[in-house]
């Protein structure tokens, strides 16, 4: 379950940026290719956040769909499943443009 380790990193990042303030929301971008299970991540996040400035914060996950551009014909495709194929020419030689993201986008905090 890599969600636990991922949750741990998210809490560390948020706690460091919060600098003593209470975090109320963490916005996360997750590419579809990262195989993160949202319910497992939410559960882990709640657990790991306990006792930190992130305790009780909402974890908002935005899933980024997979898109790629064809190295052959240059057409961009939205990719729903494997194999990842160009919608125009059917080639599988694609450069993944989006769908591999895994980053903390922003935090909402309470300022006293």
């Amino acid at each position: 379950m890599h969600e636990l380790a991922i949750a741990d990193s998210i809490v560390q990042i948020a706690d460091r940026h919060a600098n003593g303030r209470r975090v109320t929301k963490v916005q996360l971008k997750v590419g579809h290719l990262r195989q993160v299970v949202p319910s497992a991540l939410a559960f882990s996040f709640e657990l790991v956040a306990q006792g930190t400035s992130v305790e009780g914060a909402e974890l908002e996950m935005e899933e980024v769909p997979v898109t790629g551009s064809c190295r052959g014909c240059g057409v961009e495709s939205r990719l729903k499943e494997f194999p990842l194929q160009c919608r125009a020419c059917g080639s599988d030689d694609l450069r993944v443009l989006e769908g591999e993201e895994l980053f903390v986008e922003s935090l909402e905090m309470e300022e006293v």
Partner: peptide
Amino acid sequence: MHRTAVKQVVMEGVLDAN
């Protein structure tokens, strides 16, 4: 005590430390 909400852009990769 008055609390205001602030939003901060972070843009930090979750696995950057690793």
